[in-house]
Nucleic acid binder design. Structure first.
Length: 502
RNA sequence: GGUUGGGUGGCCGAGUGGCUAGGCAGAGGUCUGCAAAACCUCGUACGGCGGUUCGAAUCCGCUCCCAACCUCCA
């Protein structure tokens, strides 16, 4: 497979030509959610970005194994979390008087439901940390064996200083300066006296007596540290070194940096060739934060039940809104921007619908327009090949929509468009909109539905046409206005009248 | 304080050393019974100050501001 795909690699901070380890196959690991609360809208953006990446890789013909984990143990509360902190799931379970696995199940279900609402495809494998305790213990053993970890009071810590001294890789991804790291004195340890150095992190944590989640091991009854699950599960399902590792940019440090250290520590090799990081979602130019009220849940966004927005926006409008920015840029969520996205989304979908309903007249001869269309279609792919540039790809799709509308209106000569280009255009547009970008048509289409509505609409349109023919504009406008009240918009054209919802 | 990434027209958002991004909003026009939709035309935008260059929003330096992560303080 000749690949022209370029991916921005966070490790090199440059766009690199994508070369998979196994020709035609891609192994991709994306850090999934810690299921201790409802999905955050920012997470939805991140997973949507990787969904499009997953979709496009498949569109290119790759056989993709997409692994996205569920973290259901090990992620600790608080900053610089360690032995003194509490596991997020465990804490929630204690507060709500539920089994930890009830918490996990509840929020996993919610997460899945939300992914479906955003039309994100499920990953190929979705492993859970608690389902891979054995693999994680195995990995702790390997790291201990290679000398990059030490045991203290039943917990096991990764020795970052030793690792950093002996390997060039620590800090490379996040740009940490190792000298600064080492310069931190032992006085910084405070009550983390089990650690030899502040930057060391736990890979196995001895459970204190009141901790609910615990598994036996040779070091203690305890649980694995956060970061370890991803190292263990990516290795298990994708191999020691695989193609793409993704996640939100907030995971670069410490999570991904430590993951890399663990994998090197366990097998002496890099986990992934390409690291990809999505950027954050802002609202009104500031970060979303519950503390100052600058936050909105996906549900509120859909219903409009929030002081930050004037109305509800459908999931596909939100998805389209996200796709209009590049995954590596921050995206500012504002009411105005969402309104613009809603109109843009509809314009795109209407354009495609119109195209799909247009017949080719036959007897045409390819002219300049034919070539122009061919060029635009190639450009869509070129934009996606350039580090999944969805905003540029969309811009080109909009140029095609303008052409389509002009063809329909007779402003552009359809005689210049060959049958094969026309069919190709139909396929390209719908492939990109539905398969690659993962948009869905939320508007009920006219004409191809079932049930009595279509018949009723035909009748109303017919009555209105007659009224117009009789210059009875009171009646015709009454029909149009009343339908508009019901959310149905009539569109008149030379060929007749069509209708759309919304 | 450190690391990383940003500051683009009314809003969102691409991009690039000289050639139209795109969407939305706005102005004018075409079409229409009137609208809507659609099409055509229109905006001398690139945080600030210097520098390099024939030419910079795009490269360099300084400065201000924003965000994420980390650190410090509490």
């Amino acid at each position: 497979m000749e690949s022209t795909l370029k991916i921005h690699n966070s490790l090199s901070r440059e766009k690199e030509v994508f070369k998979p380890i196994n020709e035609g196959h891609v192994g991709m690991y994306v850090c999934g959610p810690t299921v201790y609360s409802d999905v955050h809208l920012g997470n939805c953006r991140s997973f949507t970005s990787f969904d499009v990446i997953f979709r496009y890789l498949k569109y290119l013909g790759y056989k993709v194994r997409y692994v996205r984990n569920i973290t259901d143990v090990g992620h600790l509360e608080g900053d610089n979390a360690d032995i003194s902190a509490e596991d997020k799931i465990s804490k929630k379970a204690r507060l709500e008087k539920l089994e930890p696995m009830e918490i996990v199940q509840h929020y996993t279900n919610g997460f899945h439901a939300m992914m479906r609402i955003f039309n994100n495809q499920p990953p190929s494998i979705e492993p859970r940390a608690t389902g891979h305790i054995i693999e994680q213990i195995e990995m702790v053993r390997s790291i201990l064996k290679s000398g990059y970890a030490y045991e203290a009071n039943g917990s096991v810590y990764f020795d970052t200083i030793k690792f950093a001294k002996e390997n060039e890789v620590y800090g490379k991804l996040s740009g940490r300066v190792i000298d600064d790291l080492m310069a931190e004195s032992r006085d910084d340890l405070k009550n983390q006296d089990e650690k030899r150095h502040p930057s060391d992190f736990a890979i196995w944590i001895k459970a204190d007596p009141k901790h609910i989640m615990r598994w036996p091991s040779e070091w203690s009854e305890g649980f694995p540290g956060w970061h370890l699950e991803c190292s263990a599960m990516s290795t298990k399902y994708l191999g020691r070194t695989f193609d793409i590792h993704g996640g939100g940019s907030d995971l670069k440090f410490p999570h991904h940096e430590n993951e890399i250290a663990q994998n090197y520590g366990a097998c002496g090799c890099a986990p992934a060739n390409y690291w990809m990081h999505g950027n954050m979602l802002l609202m009104n130019g500031r970060k979303m934060a519950k503390s100052d009220g600058n936050t909105i849940t996906p549900q509120q966004l859909f219903t409009g039940d929030s002081p930050h927005i004037s109305k509800g926006y459908s999931p596909m409008v939100v998805r389209f809104f996200m796709l209009q920015s590049h995954y590596r840029s921050t995206l500012d969520l504002t009411d105005e921007a969402l309104q613009a996205a809603e109109k843009g989304y509809r314009r795109l979908m209407e354009g495609n619908k119109l195209l799909q309903s247009m017949p080719h007249p036959g007897n045409t001869q390819a002219g300049p327009l034919d070539e122009e269309l061919q060029q635009l279609m190639q450009q869509v792919k070129a934009e996606m090949d350039d580090d999944f540039n969805t905003p540029k790809a969309l811009a080109v799709l909009f140029e095609l929509v303008t052409k389509i509308n002009s063809l329909k209106a007779g402003h552009l000569p359809i005689q210049e468009v060959s049958e094969s280009t026309f069919q190709q255009l139909k396929k390209t547009l719908s492939d990109y909109i539905y398969e690659v970008l993962g948009l869905k048509d939320e508007m009920e289409a006219a004409g191809n539905g079932d049930g009595p509505v279509d018949g009723l609409m035909d009748l109303l349109i017919d009555i209105r046409q007659q009224a117009r023919a009789n210059k009875d504009f009171d009646t015709s406008d009454k029909i149009r206005d009343a339908l508009k009240e019901l959310g149905i918009v009539l569109k008149d054209s030379k060929e007749g009248t069509t209708w759309t919802k919304g």
